[in-house]
Amino acid sequence: MCLVGKPGSGKTALLRAIAAQLDLPCEVFSMAGMADGSAMGTSAQWATSRPSVPLQLVQRSGFANGLVVWDEIEKASDSRHNGSAFDALLPMLERSQAQAIRDPALEVAVDLSWISHFATANSVEGIPAPLRDRMRIIKMPEPTWQHIGPLSKQIIRDIARDRGIDERWYPPLADDEVDVIKEVWPGGSLRKLRRGIEGTLAAREAFMGQA
């Protein structure tokens, strides 16, 4: 599956949330600027050899059915000088081939057929046809101020997790706080919405410090 939408629309965050809801280990790998096939493993003959991204996820988590997000997939280079990032991905997306993929770092065939593959893109332009043919393309709707309620709850949970704080210390936004955020965020990038919420939480903390 490939989620296509504007930058900041929450594509990657949604896929992380899906993985968390399913209790699956997740790896987000940026494809932006990739100009070779190293994401699918590098040769054991190299001092810096490493397994493929999916196999690293299996090794780290101990689970064979993890979820890999190929982020900004359309921004990978189509160069084939040191192997193509796109060509390397193709067998991963075919279950029959993924059952016995030879990993260049281990030099043995490994079964990666239980890995779920997702991708994000700002546009389908730049994604080769063979890759698009193997993926279900889903248009990611752009969030608006009408979605502030559920979005803010998830963002507050993420902020609490990132800060290592129990989310119960951060109650949901009050109506007057939502009204303030609406004035600065009419919709669009969730990164801007997060900055607005972080500012609101900072204002809460400053007020509590003065109380």
Rank of each mutant, 00 (worst) to 15 (best):
A105F: 08
A105P: 02
A105D: 08
L106C: 13
L106F: 04
L106M: 07
L106W: 04
E107K: 13
E107R: 11
E107P: 00
E107H: 04
V108W: 02
V108N: 02
V108L: 02
A109W: 12
A109P: 03
A109K: 15
A109V: 11
V110E: 13
V110Q: 08
V110N: 04
V110A: 01
V110R: 12
L112H: 09
L112C: 06
S113K: 04
S113N: 07
S113L: 02
W114S: 10
I115L: 00
S116P: 07
S116L: 11
S116C: 09
S116A: 05
S116R: 13
S116Q: 11
H117E: 04
H117V: 08
H117C: 01
H117N: 12
F118A: 00
F118L: 05
F118C: 02
A119D: 05
A119V: 03
A119E: 00
T120W: 07
T120D: 03
T120A: 05
T120Q: 11
T120K: 06
A121R: 05
A121D: 01
N122K: 02
N122R: 01
N122I: 10
N122S: 05
N122Q: 02
N122L: 03
V124G: 14
V124M: 15
V124Q: 14
E125R: 15
E125A: 12
E125G: 00
G126W: 04
G126N: 13
I127Y: 15
I127C: 04
P128Y: 03
A129N: 08
A129C: 09
A129G: 05
A129E: 15
A129I: 08
P130W: 15
L131Y: 07
L131D: 06
L131H: 09
L131Q: 14
L131C: 10
R132K: 13
D133M: 04
D133K: 03
D133Q: 13
R134V: 10
R134C: 01
R134G: 01
M135T: 10
M135P: 13
M135S: 14
M135L: 15
M135K: 14
M135I: 10
